[in-house]
Each structure stands twice: as C-alpha cells, then as structure tokens.
Design a protein around this nucleic acid. Structure first.
Lengths: 162, 162
DNA sequence: CTATCTCTGACTATATTTGACCATATAAAT
DNA sequence: ATTTATATGGTCAAATATAGTCAGAGATAG
C-alpha cells in the first residue's frame, strides 16, 4: 500500500536515475499538482527521503524560476564516520573532541592538513558566538553535514552553479 | 528554467569575458529592449549579480551618452583582497553572500573546489541551527577567523600541535 | 491504545518583475 | 550664461511567483 509520499519518492528517484549526472531540477508546485497533494508534502518527502544519509543533497531557489535541485552522490568509504558522528551528534561535541576527530580524519587521509586547519577555524570556540551548550549542538550539526558530504564526495554540490 | 535576470546576467558576463580588459560599457535601455523588460530590471541584475563578492565593480553615468560600466576586478594580491573583504564584513553575512565570497576565493586560487565545498558544509543554513539573525552573525565570526587564518597561513596555527 | 508516519493548511521567506517617480548629464534655445 | 528640453540612469515599493516551516489532524502499525 504505497502512500502518496512513497509514490513521489519513487517518481523523483526515477528521474534521478535517468539523469546523466545524478542532478535534477524539479518544481515543487508542479510535482504537487501531478500527485494532487499540497506543496508542503513535497517538502515532507524531501526531508524524510532525500537525506544526506541516503546520499542526497538538496538545494533550492524560491521566487520566479524557483526549483528543487536534487543531487545524488555516490556512496563511498567513510560511512563509519557518518554513523559515528551521528551518534555523537545527539548531545554535545566539545572543542577537544572536535580536534581529535579532525586529527583522526587527517590520519585516515580523509583530510589534509590545510583542510583540517581551515575547518578548525570554523569550529573552534572563538568562531562560535554562543554559549557552551549551543556551541556543542552547532558543532554537531556542522560536522554531520561535513561528514555526510565527505562520505559521499564527488564534487557534486557545486554551489557556483546556483 | 532560467529567468530573464539569469539571461541578462549571462549576456553581460559573456561580453565581459570577451573584452580585453574586463571593462565594458553598456546601455541600460538598450539591454532592457533586447530582453523585453523594464529598464529597472537591469538595475536588479546589476545589484544582485555584479557584486563585489563576485569580483565586480559597476559605475554609471546618466543623461545623454549615459552608460553602465562594468569592471571585472582582476585577480589581485591575496592579502589585500582578504583585508578588503574582511573590512566589508559586516555583522550579518547571508548565505548568498557567503557563496559568492567562497566562489571568489576559488577564483583567486586561495581555495580549491574541495576546500570550498568542505567549508560550505559548515556555513550553509542547514548547518547552523539557530535563527536567521544569528546565522548571519555566526558566519561573520567564522569567516573572520577563516580569513585571519588564511591571511597568515605561513605561521601555522596547527592544532595538532596544540 | 499508543507511537509513529503521513497529510494538510495557514503563515512565512525569498526571488523576480513591473511601474511610478526621482536624479543627472548633455544639448538646444534664449 | 542661463534656462529649458531631452536623454539617460536610479530608487523603491507593490505585485507576482515560488519554496519553507510548523503544528495539528488523520491514518496505520505494533
């Protein structure tokens, strides 16, 4: 008994599969009309099915000429890290923990020194203007996206093409 | 699904690219006629796409013989550019502005594509779990630290040695 | 019967397009 | 020289076209 969401998911997956680069542009309103549902249901499908964990990045633009851009990124190596970080993400990630983690990524040759240092500039305490509790929470979010990206890397989220 | 604005942008970019010095003169009315839009839409394109973050300066003259002068800022010295951007760095930095800035750093060969993408994962809206106002403020802090690091990269703040 | 998943709609956010009105430079008329 | 006419470009707010969020209602699985 597939739900509407299931069908929308399938529909999108199919378009992605038939695309050359694994990158497609669709319109929210268009899709919602095709499936006779409210537009926000498309957001629901995106949020529950086209996640970084499943190997998708989604970008969008509003207004005239607006769209949803769905990017399929092939899964490679480091899924372990993604899982690991996801667990840790629950509560709090301290700066010490962050340093260790980044250094570990360097050891594993997932990042090089410069990349690590650049990233550190964004994650260190001084760069997060909020209280300790929030810093940890923010690091969680940021690292999750970072790792998600790395784990599925393939130069595909080219933000210059927006 | 390119909009008129997208096409106007592309058109201008192309003229700039084919110019010898990266400096061109165009006429607002002329352009608006070519694309069948109101003249003020040209201003809109200029204001949203030919920004300093993307490496452009725009000057103009009114009246008889009026024009828009679009200047592609040539690749300049790293440090000067960073300082200049850093000064302009207000309290609030939006995600669009951030993208433009990062892309510009790639153009300047200060970052490579991968570094840009890694950094973007930490600065994009979805990675900052707070309200819009705070997102902007946080980006400001983070970017300032990033720029500071890059500008002084010789004396490495190597966190593995911390 | 309860927890979770799905669906809906009101409200919000953002990008583009348009037009009325404003500002300035040059040319022409006095 | 000064004034007036003409030819540009600039600003801003409203209209339009998308997409996003969130809380609550409804459906379904255990």
């Amino acid at each position: 008994m597939p739900t509407i969401s299931d069908m929308v998911e399938k529909y999108i997956l199919n378009i992605v599969k038939n695309s050359k680069e694994g990158i497609i542009h669709i319109q929210r309103t268009n899709l919602s009309e095709k499936f006779s549902c409210v537009p926000s249901q498309i957001n629901y499908v995106i949020k529950t099915r086209f996640t970084i964990e499943r190997g998708f990045l989604v970008e969008s633009k509003r207004g005239e000429g607006g769209f949803l851009k769905i990017i399929k990124i092939p899964v490679i190596q480091t899924k372990i890290y993604l899982d690991r970080i996801n667990e840790g993400t629950a509560n709090y990630i301290g700066s010490e923990q962050t340093k260790n983690f980044l250094n570990r990524l360097v050891e594993e040759k997932i990042l090089n020194e410069r990349e690590k240092n650049l990233i550190w500039q964004l994650l260190k305490d001084e760069s997060l203007p909020c209280n300790k509790e929030e810093k940890g929470y923010q690091r969680g979010k940021m690292l999750k996206n970072l790792i998600g990206y790395i784990a599925n890397e393939e130069e595909k989220s080219d933000l210059s093409s927006l």
